[in-house]
Simulated scan of single mutants.
Amino acid sequence: MNTSRRSALGVITSSATAFLLTETPMAQPMPVTEAIFCIPGMWDGRSDFIRRVVTHEPKGRFMFAGMVLADMQEKEHVGLEVQPRDPQIKRAFELAGQGKLTEAALAAIDRHASVAYLRAPPRLLEERAKVAKFTKLLESVGGLAIKVESTGVAHTWERWSQLVSGTAFDLYAAVVTLVADRDHYYSCGMHNFSLPDCEVPRTLSPDAAAELMNRFNHWRLTETPVLADQHTFSLTSTAPRYRIQLEADARHAADEPFFNPHGLWRLSVA
């Protein structure tokens, strides 16, 4: 599986502070997907991967059978596949790293022997400790770096560890990216939290668009408001108001890892 992304909007900016919301809430049940993580590694195929997992200290705590990686002590598991070397993976990490992966890191990734794909439920706020544990295990047994396959953003292990163990906004920054097309700026990756993404008009400056999207997404992630079409949203009492409308994700095919089955909130000036 190899999914590179278009250029991201820029650096994730500030966290949420103050918001205004109007009108009566309404909820709609939505389908779910998976959070998928790509980890190229130095293990020489599935048998070598299994050997490294079961001999990892403390021996016998972790097991890999079928397509399940399990922590026998904590009775937890995630889905996992081991696939052959992918000659395109260096380029995929280069694009997804958005200039933050060094040439040395990319060269190491290019020397990978096989690739692991870890799958977790799309509830990363609740699942973060489990995901952090299993990705740390993959690092320890020879994983070289990590790419959020369901978003298309890559990190060094040091950066990933800092983000996944940090605040809710750090976790958001780990798995959500901001992208531009001809008419809109939009986020990609909120389906990793089982939430819709958002988009704003391209008439905004890149900095203003990033601020609006990041704060809108972070607020929904941490405050869990129940929203409906025609609600209005504003950063402050004096800032512009935006009317929201839930739309289907028309940018990605339903079988693509980037696809958000929950759709996206379109923010238009009210």
Rank of each mutant, 00 (worst) to 15 (best):
M1F: 05
T3W: 15
S4K: 09
R5C: 06
A8T: 07
T13C: 06
T13V: 04
T13W: 14
A18C: 05
F19Y: 15
F19H: 13
Q28L: 07
P29K: 11
P31V: 04
V32Y: 04
V32C: 01
T33S: 10
A35L: 14
P40C: 03
G41D: 06
G41P: 02
M42D: 08
S47D: 11
D48I: 02
V54L: 11
T55S: 14
H56K: 09
R61L: 00
M63E: 15
M63Y: 14
F64P: 06
D71V: 00
D71G: 00
M72T: 00
Q83L: 13
P84C: 04
Q88E: 13
Q88H: 12
R91G: 01
R91L: 09
R91S: 02
A92T: 07
F93D: 05
E94T: 02
T102E: 13
H112R: 04
A113F: 06
S114H: 10
V115D: 12
V115Q: 14
A116M: 10
Y117K: 05
P121M: 12
P122R: 07
L124H: 12
L125V: 02
E127S: 04
E127P: 02
K133Q: 11
T135M: 05
L138R: 13
L138Q: 08
S140F: 04
S140C: 01
G142R: 14
G143Q: 10
A145H: 07
I146G: 00
K147A: 08
K147V: 03
S150F: 08
T156H: 05
S165Y: 13
T167G: 10
A168P: 14
Y172K: 14
V179I: 13
S187Y: 14
C188I: 09
M190Q: 09
C198K: 06
C198W: 12
C198D: 10
T203S: 09
D207H: 10
A208Y: 03
A209P: 09
N214A: 02
R220C: 14
P225G: 00
A228F: 07
A228K: 11
H231A: 02
T232N: 07
T236H: 01
T238E: 09
P240F: 10
L246I: 03
E247S: 03
H252E: 04
E256H: 12
L267T: 11
L267Y: 15
